[in-house]
Nucleic acid binder design. Structure first.
Lengths: 223, 223
DNA sequence: CCGGGCGGAATTGGATCCAATGATTGTTCG
DNA sequence: CGAACAATCATTGGATCCAATTCCGCCCGG
């Protein structure tokens, strides 16, 4: 137990979970030694873990200076949503041929879970689960990874958004999920893509309406 | 000079250049100690460099086993082109508002360079330069990085493709570049996006017509 | 009173050394 | 004679130690 190989991957996963979960917030500095002490390892696997997280964009490394949880500007967040608007319809279109009556029934269940989520946290979790399931494709490693990274990057802001705006947007989201499911049932790829794009675009609009969540483009560090 | 901080980044850049340039080919194993000896450093910065390259997908790391230059299957390559078909039109649309008469004139020069490239290597280089220039946007870090990674990943196969198929496809590419420029002159975003997507789609079709370039999906290692 | 330059502490990056895992070869048994 | 097993070897992953850089506060000078 003293020497797990690839311990860095496990540490990266734990740190990622903390960032997604909100334990570590954008702008927070990550000191190698602190984390090393906490996990009871040396700084080497921490460095590797930070590089892994940097590669997905969750952490920003500055040479000889330090590591911070990536803080998005409004423009960057907008960019991420724009990418999602293009990539997720593609991923969905690739996933559709693999769907069956049974899998669509499961998606229906997942949509139900979203609708009945009690807390904002549950809602986000269920929403992500729904999207992940609907767009799951066995083969497409890079594409689904990329999409996953984009979700991770914007997760924090999605949660902040959900708190004040819960009621109205939730209904929209639920309705859009139902529309996506309907397109899946019909096997209508074009409609599914279009609705998915609109679904993401609507959330982007909401993000753009709340610029106060973001750092002023490159200044104003130290949350 | 003995201790450059962030030497790993420089090593990563050099290795990346070798992979792009063809010195290292997909499937080649990269042994940490070899590279370390060659650069006159310890294995630590090599490990970091390999992680950096892995993050962009150029290198595949297997825990406790080793590092290989990423070898794409036909399906993966197809996936990369599909992603490019969606992302590059987006990037182009973001770039267009920043274009001016002068910058478009420069693009014209670059298109000229592509047309008059002598060797396949020059052609690829010029083609990439053209695309990069046309889609250059000051702000969009993540998107242009992602697109850059996708180009890097498929560069090797693009070169292999160009050798046998030079004549015919070259004319098409040149013509499509001209069409893109025309759309830029007119400021017609929709056309520009559509042509760019078609441009990439055509190359994808060519890739799909040459499955013999690819490894059989996950076997047949050791080039 | 304010700004620039200097010095020390904190923190990161790299080198060397050691442990553990995976691959390969030789050996032995069915 | 082939196949499965075991031991050795090569290679990667981690720990400890050391050097270099950055950041902070402090002091001196204008």
């Amino acid at each position: 137990m003293a020497h797990d190989p690839a311990r860095s991957a496990a540490i990266a996963a734990e740190l990622r979970a903390r960032i997604i979960g909100g334990g570590l917030q954008p702008g927070d500095r990550i000191r190698q030694e602190e984390v090393a002490a906490e996990f009871g390892v040396s700084r080497i696997p921490i460095r590797e873990a930070l590089r892994i997280l940097e590669s997905s964009g969750l952490v920003t490394l500055v040479a000889s200076t330090g590591a911070w949880v990536t803080e998005l500007s409004l423009e960057e967040c907008r960019e991420i949503y724009l990418m999602r608007e293009r990539l997720e319809p593609l991923l969905l279109s690739l996933a559709m041929p693999t769907h069956t009556q049974e899998s669509i029934a499961e998606f229906d269940q997942l949509a139900e879970v979203v609708e009945q989520a009690a807390s904002p946290g549950d809602f986000l979790e269920a929403d992500r689960e729904f999207h992940r399931a609907v767009m799951a494709v066995p083969g497409t490693l890079r594409l689904s990874e990329t999409v996953d990274h984009l979700w991770n990057l914007s997760h924090y802001y999605r949660r902040r958004l959900l708190s004040p705006e819960v009621s109205r947007r939730r209904e929209d989201i639920v309705a859009e999920h139902r529309m996506i499911l309907r397109a899946l049932e019909l096997g209508d790829v074009d409609s599914a893509e279009a609705i998915m794009a609109a679904h993401i675009r609507h959330t982007r609009r909401l993000v753009e309406a709340h610029p106060e969540m973001f750092a002023r483009d490159r200044n104003g560090e130290e949350r």
